[in-house]
Every structure is written in C-alpha cells, then in structure tokens.
Simulated scan of single mutants.
Amino acid sequence: MKTDDEIKRDVEAELRYDPDIDPTNIAVSVKSGVVTLAGFIPSYLQKIEAEKDAKRVQGVVGVANDLEVRLPSVDQRPDPDIARDAVAALKAQLPYSYQNFKVIVRDGWITLEGEAEWHYQKEKAEMSARGVKGCKGVINSIKITPKVAAQEIKRKIEEAFMRSAEVDAKNVQVEASDGEVVLKGTVHSWFEREQAERAAWMAPGVKRVEDRIVVQP
C-alpha cells in the first residue's frame, strides 16, 4: 500500500504530465489517502481536469478540490454574455430538451435549473456550461423526474455492472427505491468506484445515487 508521501508525489507527477492544465499554482496534500488540491487555476475546465488527474492515481481514496478559479483578464466577461452563450451551448448539445432548463449567471457562476428525465441530460447540460468562456463554476440544480419502477432501475444497473470491464460486479450491491440508488461493497481503486457510480447514474429514472462503496487498494 502506498504511503501518503508516495501518493502526493504521484499526484504531482500526474498534474505535471497533463498538457491541458497549468499546475504551477496547485498545492497537493494527502492524509490517509485523501488528496486535497489547493491554490488557484486559470479556468473551471482546468479545475475539473485537475480533480480527474488526482482520482486516476493509485492509492487515492478521496479528493477535496479546493482550487479557486482566477480567470485571466482576457477571459472575464459580463454575466449576460455568459448566460447567452450558456443557453446556446445547451441548445447545441440538447436540441430536444434544452427548453426544459433555465440558466442563471452571477459573478461568472452558472446555475442550471429545471427538470430532466435522464441523468445524462443533466450531466450533458453541465458539461456544455463548463466550456463557456468566462465561466468560474457551475451549480447544477436540475432535478431528475423518475418514470421507471425501482426494480427495473436495480436490474438495469446490475446488468450494466456485468457488462463492464472496469467494475467487479460481484463485489458491488445495488439497492433502489423511488429513483434513489444506494451502492455498497468494495472496489480496488477510486477509479473503479467512480465507474460504478457513473454506471448507476446512467440508468433511466435515477435521481440520486448514494455511493457507500469502500475503496480497498
């Protein structure tokens, strides 16, 4: 099992290895396998990317992303311009459901509201907003309105685990009730835990996932 110092070294190396982020002002600390990212970064997309980099490192059991987005002056924009581009991005990515969502922008932070039938629509809406120039962060308040029975949700998630090469299905248990899913069991890495949660979110009708899976490297 890796020590905290070894995990810290590997996370720092992973951040330097990623050509899509500038790690100059990122400080990494590790305690009991939980990584904290502190400092500041020049875009919201880079903040998300830095978190992904940390989660990929073996031995990481959790990540606290405390990075502050400090936009360069050239990327700072008025809220109405950000809102207009966010709506356009939603329309481009979700042409048949974008009208169900509402965009609110304050001090560069984009809030998404409304209802979606599928979690992928909520996720795609957030991803489209992240890329808008001038965005400092996204608050996704879109609600999922389930239209699928609990047993059907449970069955579809278990089948997805069985198909996955990245999730050991026999070690993960699924409970479902009224669109809410609870995952239990053990996995060997944070990445495997994340993939299990992602597979659960992709099932139709899921409005909440409580991930109780324990990482045992």
Rank of each mutant, 00 (worst) to 15 (best):
K2L: 10
T3I: 02
T3S: 15
D5L: 06
R9L: 05
R9A: 11
D10F: 02
E14D: 11
E14I: 05
L15R: 03
D18Q: 08
D18K: 01
P19W: 03
D20F: 08
I21N: 01
P23W: 03
I26D: 01
S29E: 08
K31Y: 00
K31Q: 10
S32W: 02
G33Q: 08
V34I: 13
T36P: 00
L37I: 07
A38Y: 01
Q46K: 06
E51W: 05
D53I: 03
A54Q: 07
A54S: 14
A54H: 08
K55C: 12
R56S: 11
Q58T: 09
Q58R: 12
Q58G: 11
V60F: 04
V60I: 09
G62C: 09
N65I: 07
L67Q: 01
L67V: 04
L67C: 04
R70C: 01
R77I: 01
D79A: 11
D81H: 05
I82A: 02
R84A: 14
R84V: 04
V87M: 09
V87Q: 14
V87N: 08
A88D: 02
A88V: 04
K91P: 01
Q93A: 14
L94I: 12
L94P: 04
P95H: 12
P95N: 08
Y98T: 05
Y98D: 06
N100V: 04
K102M: 10
K102H: 13
R106P: 02
I110M: 00
E113G: 07
E113Y: 07
W118V: 09
Y120E: 02
K122T: 04
A125E: 02
E126P: 01
M127R: 05
A129G: 02
K133L: 05
K136L: 03
K143Q: 14
K147S: 15
A149H: 11
A149E: 15
A150R: 12
Q151I: 02
E152L: 09
I153H: 00
K154S: 10
K154G: 03
K154T: 05
R155Q: 14
R155Y: 08
R155I: 03
E158C: 07
E159D: 15
R163C: 09
R163H: 15
E166G: 10
E166P: 03
D168Y: 09
D168P: 10
D168W: 05
D168A: 14
A169F: 14
E175Q: 15
E175W: 14
D178T: 07
D178K: 13
E180F: 08
V182S: 13
V182L: 13
L183V: 10
G185F: 07
V187A: 09
H188D: 15
W190N: 03
E192C: 10
Q195K: 15
R198C: 13
R198Y: 12
A199Y: 04
A199L: 15
M202Q: 13
M202T: 09
A203Q: 01
A203M: 03
P204G: 06
P204C: 13
P204V: 10
K207V: 07
K207L: 09
R208C: 04
R208W: 11
R208Y: 14
R208V: 04
V209E: 04
R212T: 08
I213R: 01
V214G: 07
V214I: 15
P217C: 08
